[in-house]
C-alpha cells in the first residue's frame, strides 16, 4: 500500500528522486504545498475509488496518515 501511495505522490509532485517514508511531511518537500495536497487527495480518491470526508482530509499531516486513512477506507 505504501508503495502504491508513494507512486501517486511522486507523480503528482513530479519528483522521482524523493525518498518518502511514513514520517514524510508536506513541509519537508518544496513542491508539496496546499494546492499539491488537494491534488494528491483527489488522485488517491480516483485511484482507490474512495471519498475522504472533510474531517479526514483536514486531518492528514504526513504520509503515514494517508496510508492509515486509505487502508481504513479500503477496509
Amino acid at each position: 500500500m505504501l508503495e502504491k501511495i508513494r507512486d501517486i505522490l511522486l507523480d503528482v509532485l513530479d519528483r522521482d528522486d524523493l525518498d518518502l517514508t511514513l514520517e514524510s511531511r508536506p513541509d519537508q518537500v518544496e513542491e508539496w504545498d496546499s494546492m499539491a495536497q488537494i491534488q494528491i487527495l483527489v488522485a488517491l480518491e480516483n485511484e482507490f475509488g474512495i471519498k475522504f470526508t472533510l474531517e479526514e482530509s483536514q486531518g492528514i499531516a504526513c504520509v503515514g496518515d494517508i496510508v492509515e486513512v486509505v487502508e481504513r477506507k479500503m477496509g
Binding site: S34, I38, Q39, V42, N46, T53, L54, S57, Q58
Partner: peptide
C-alpha cells in the same frame, strides 16, 4: 465536491 468547497473554495470538483 462539497468538501473541496469547504476545504479550498473550489466551486467544482477536480474531475
Amino acid at each position: 465536491d462539497r468538501s473541496l468547497w469547504w476545504s479550498s473554495k473550489y466551486a467544482l470538483s477536480f474531475n
